[in-house]
Amino acid sequence: MTVQTDAIKRHTIAVLVDNESGVLARVIGLFSGRGYNIESLTVAEVDPHENLSRITIVTSGTPMVIEQIKAQLRRLVPVHKVRDLTVEGPSVARELALVKVAGVGEKRVEALRIADIFRARVLDSTNESFVFEIVGSTEKLDAFINLMEPLGLVDVSRTGVAAIARGANPL
């Protein structure tokens, strides 16, 4: 009973931290030092008055590991709040990608058609390329990028996941 062998599950964790030098290094160092997985990480200042930044981490692990990750995060001195958006009520998550596709002729037309289906916007266009902007879930972005692959995909830039709880309450 002492060793849990539960399945590995993906969790999205929101962390509110002091926006000070080294704070991201502390979080990343914690993950690498203890062998935890980072699938996606985003960070930006969200409260300039209180000088707070929000880090959104997508990670995966057994329930015991996820519990450890949260406890270890809470132990960092500049960390104010840690919330597991995957288990603490419903939440929404979005990611943005910029996708560059180069090609001419039929492939170029096909790329534009698929972009339309996915509601991706064209940010830049030349005679032989597009830059698409697409917003959605990680899975949607993955699907779009996969479809672009044979059509001349040359470059992808993704923001990583930003997530927030549904409803009226703050973090």
């Binding site: 009973m1 002492t2 015991m64 519990e67 406890a71 809470r74 132990r75």
Partner: peptide, 11 residues
């Protein structure tokens, strides 16, 4: 006193 010590090695 340290919540991260709990359920780390042993549930």
């Amino acid at each position: 006193i340290d919540p991260s010590s709990i359920n780390k090695n042993v549930a």
